[in-house]
Design a protein around this nucleic acid. Structure first.
Lengths: 240, 240
DNA sequence: GGACACCGTATTGAATACAAAATTTGCCTG
DNA sequence: CAGGCAAATTTTGTATTCAATACGGTGTCC
């Protein structure tokens, strides 16, 4: 059965690798809020013209993950504290429903996938790969939305996860994000048991818990050397 | 106080007039699902190069309001029945919360604005301007989201309203959409009274009611003569 | 010594030009 | 007359070019 998130539908736009690479780098915190994303540099990195880079940047801007400033360029977005609150408010409303739907929908292979995701996350934590762990944590939430098989919610959740990554980079007070892993474990358990109500409750408390780790402390920062950063996030095109 | 939806923030991209015109034409059902949107034609219409038209089309595609097919062009999207269900499911979840927030947030000027919106809608109905009435109905929902002053929800609601317009064009079984006006009236009343709970309930039942008018009947159609259609949707730039 | 203005450089915004793909048309063949 | 192949046209995808704006440095004036 066709599932949400299959890339078959969206006829491959050539800018998607760039979009994916930048999104990935944001999820791992390799790219921090405020970082400038110069068109020339990206064009050189991906060996395309600025035209296609601009398309990718506009898509990211539409996600509100980058901010376009006229005649000044593209910057990784710096969500305000108000928006941070909004994002987690929306997640608290939507993702519990999504988790419940996933519980009703999940097939055995889906459970396997979720568990593999968690295993990789755990491994990343043990290897002190904080960025990788953050990425996998986001992918976990996205996977649940994919299992729920709801295109509209899937799009929303993916977007909110990316924004959350920026918010965590800016405002996270918690040193260790990884206490959350137990929440993820319990969630998979509920989904595996098809306990929609439990999944819903667990997801809600998980999101509330996530937001409780967000604080007023600003942590502005930016980095350079996009080549080094993005190189690791290029998704290889599935060459037959 | 700065409000959500102010265009100040998004530094004016030059494609926004085109995006707005097409979105408007979709909301009025002047543009029907499946209609092709050729780049040359739009470029000529708006007196810009294809470059900026493509940017607008990509933004619309990101909204999933148009579908881009590789090497074939852009078409107004034709949401599946599954997606139709998803859209109204999402609206039923999100918009009641938004209405409650609007009730808590509304200032007198906001109530005035909502009532003016309803008056214009009523006038459009009496003038048999179905398209105009549909547009104003969508604007009413968007206005509530704007009053709620929640950027994330505002973006989502606006997108869902546009998708709903496509869905209604494809699947609406009801001849007369306008029984809904009473629901809108009651909603404004609740918001004016700052009765968040009432507003939430009324919005939920309104959305459920809207979806009940959606049926399985397909109604595929498309139109031509973009120039005539879109001419009325060009938003004049606010020349000082 | 500091502030401001001017100029050079770099980067973005938009249009044009070129290449590739698909659709359409016409023609030929069965 | 129908079907299919092939050239021609149209339309999209991408690169390149040109113009406009912002940034940084330097020199001068106060």
């Amino acid at each position: 059965m066709a599932r949400v998130g299959d890339k078959a539908a969206n006829d491959g736009q050539s800018w998607q690798p760039i979009h994916a690479a930048i999104t990935g780098a944001i999820l791992t915190h390799d790219l921090l809020p405020g970082t400038k994303l110069p068109e020339d540099e990206l064009a050189a990195l991906f060996s395309v013209s600025r035209t296609v880079v601009r398309a990718a940047l506009q898509a990211l801007a539409h996600d509100r993950i980058v901010q376009l400033e006229k005649n000044r360029g593209a910057f990784v977005a710096q969500p305000s504290k108000k928006e941070a609150k909004e994002v987690f408010e929306a997640r608290a409303l939507i993702e519990p429903k999504v988790a419940a739907m996933a519980a009703n929908n999940a097939r055995p292979s889906d459970i396997v996938r979720l568990k593999r995701c968690l295993a990789e996350e755990e491994e990343a934590v043990h290897q002190q790969k904080r960025g990788e762990a953050l990425l996998l944590s986001a992918r976990f939430h996205e996977s649940i939305a994919e299992i729920a098989n709801h295109t509209v919610y899937f799009d929303i959740v993916r977007n909110l996860c990316a924004k959350s990554s920026l918010i965590i980079a800016l405002y996270s007070a918690r040193v260790d994000i990884f206490c959350e892993r137990h929440a993820h474990d319990a969630l998979v358990e509920a989904i595996a048991n098809k306990s929609a109500h439990d999944a819903e409750e667990l997801m809600l408390s998980h999101i509330v818990d996530l937001f409780s780790g967000i604080d007023a402390r600003e942590r502005p920062a930016s980095t350079r050397d996009l080549a080094e950063i993005l190189g690791r996030h290029v998704v290889r095109v599935a060459s037959a």
